[in-house]
């Protein structure tokens, strides 16, 4: 047997490699270069070694932003994934309802991200907002996302869930539709309960799309910027200052490129390692159970 396989097909990936090099690898290398220097202006920089990393790693506000980010992403995953699956299970399987529900579900995904923030600012305003006025005046609960950290968190979470649960639902729906009818027939013959059908047929068969959903939702929620920036600007106080908002404050507000570079790289490494762990865990879930 010829040990040397024909590998010329790999040449087809060259355009992708070139694009990735220019869009990701070269900028990333530049950020690494920034992170070891203090940059004063074009062409003026001073090599400072690991000083920036030391500053970033000991920055108490950064630690707070990091824990806030983990809490936010954790809550987002805990709510959006089960809710998305539930929505997908409830969506019609045939008839005109399919197209209708798909379009309705996709609507929040089509709105530009900064517009989402503006929509929710108006929606939760205590005087004229539908939600804000209802909660304040009808339910009699004081709700103001600009004054109370908890209210700001609830609003940001609601906005995120409203915006992105449809993506999880659409992915889960696609996964559900791909299950052949024979599985359900077999389950029916065995007298499986709806829960058993879900647990042993639907959930394992959705593993692939749910892996993608979890990874996408984790990365996006961990990198969230535009919506909370427009909605709360990171406030009240620092209560909704997530990592990317703090990063932009450092990089653009204070033009501290070295610190921002070191910060970005640590941020990148955290995301990379968590995605690797998620991917490995989800890839191995259910192995050895015959699914």
């Amino acid at each position: 047997m010829n040990k040397w396989e024909n590998n010329r097909a790999w040449l087809l990936t060259v355009p992708v490699l070139v694009i990735v090099a220019f869009s990701s690898i070269i900028p990333l290398m530049t950020v690494v270069n920034y992170s070891v220097q203090d940059i004063f202006g074009p062409g003026q920089s001073l090599f400072v070694g690991t000083e920036m990393y030391k500053n970033v790693l000991r920055d108490a506000r950064l630690h707070e932003a990091l824990w806030r980010q983990f809490l936010f992403s954790g809550l987002v995953l805990l709510i959006e994934i089960p809710l998305g699956i539930a929505l997908a299970l409830a969506m019609p399987k045939k008839g005109w309802g399919v197209s209708f529900s798909l379009v309705v579900m996709a609507l929040p995904l089509l709105i530009p991200w900064n517009t989402i923030g503006s929509i929710w600012i108006i929606f939760v305003r205590p005087d004229i907002g539908l939600f804000g006025a209802f909660v304040n005046n009808v339910l009699g609960i004081g709700f103001d996302h600009t004054a109370r950290p908890l209210d700001a968190w609830i609003t940001t979470l609601l906005m995120e869930i409203w915006h992105w649960t449809p993506l999880v639902a659409l992915l889960a729906y696609a996964g559900l539709r791909a299950i052949p009818e024979v599985y359900y027939q077999a389950a029916k013959i065995d007298g499986a309960s709806p829960w058993a059908t879900f647990r042993y047929i639907q959930l394992p068969k959705m593993r692939g799309v749910l892996t993608i959903a979890v990874l996408l939702r984790f990365m996006d929620s961990f990198l969230i910027y535009a919506e909370p920036f427009v909605l709360t600007g990171g406030g009240p106080g620092n209560s909704t200052t997530f990592l990317s908002i703090y990063l932009v404050k450092l990089a653009l507000g204070q033009f501290d490129l070295g610190t921002a570079g070191a910060f970005s790289l640590i941020y990148f490494l955290i995301i990379e390692i968590l995605c690797f762990v998620f991917y490995q865990v989800l890839k191995n879930v259910g192995k050895g159970t015959g699914t």
């Binding site: 530049t30 270069n33 070891v36 940059i39």
Partner: peptide, 9 residues
Amino acid sequence: DWMYWTKPT
């Protein structure tokens, strides 16, 4: 030049 290379990096 725009990449601000340093010897260690």
